[in-house]
Amino acid sequence: MNTATVVGTASMGAKFLGALVLTLKVLIYLFLMVMIGLFLMGIYRKFTARVQYRVGPPIWQPYIDVIKLLSKKDAATKNWVFDLGVIMGLGGPLALLLFLPLDTIVGLNFHTKGDLILILYLAVVGPLGFALAASVGASPWGAIGVGRALSMMLGYELPFILGLLAVVAKDGTLLLQKVSAAQSMWNPAGWHYFQWPLILAAIGAHIALQGVMSEKPFDQAIAPHEIASGIMVEFGGKYLGMMLLMKAASLMAELGLFAVFFLGGTTAWDTIVKIFALFIIAISFDAVLGRFRPDQAFTVLWKWPTIIALLGLLLTVFA
């Protein structure tokens, strides 16, 4: 609708300037989101350390880790397609972030274009990129890791989608902007999370969210004891750094999506606050729970969260 405003009818120079400002805004926005994501991971390590009776690293430890990893001299790669996979892996979530309402932080309005189907299929690009890289890495452990990550994806995708579709059923629209418009920003009563038929869908999706973010008890993909950190087996220096950045970006994206759909995240700041709240809840589960076996996790995910979310959906549609 408003593509015209960007590529205005003004002279060539103004148009070029507009494009430059836009790219700068986009770069700043992505940088900010990744920084907040890394900050979240810093809180995660501090939180789990304190649960485990120890001091734990400083909160800015992930920034140091990323700098160290990106400055490694000769990370091993098998084939240029390995690098392509990693670039695609990081590019996916970054592109996804542009469609979330978080981008009002720098005054962009791409999020008006984002709708649920695009978000769901853009979220797949990141894992697919790293899956390709792990496959090129040709280590059997890498293949098992990817196999588990994809099985888990099949596992948590069903309840998560059912939950989101319940919201789409209630608001009758796929556009994120309209969904957040249908909810109030700060008053919990206005959030979909606490409205009657939707609370079931929200609970189902919330359990699945634990799998989406691959926190325990559904973190089979990188289970160190069983498959030596699965997918990340062949990722050295800068490839591991880019994977950390991807983890940070997708953390913001997944939690942002959930916040928009169930907690009414409209502008950037309130969504970030809600993301923090969701993150604290998630890591408190992660700190104390164990890890299911892949088939147990799949059965658990396709049983209780799916039933609850389906109930929520059916009640919304028919009641």
Binding site: A49, Y53, G56, P57, P58, K68, A76, M232
Partner: peptide, 22 residues
């Protein structure tokens, strides 16, 4: 590594594979 001496406060973490280790 664990709660008494806790090397992670220096940022030291045990990693599973040589590719990731320093």
């Amino acid at each position: 590594m664990t709660s008494r001496f806790d090397m992670e406060r220096f940022g030291i973490m045990p990693m599973a594979t040589p590719r990731q280790a320093d």
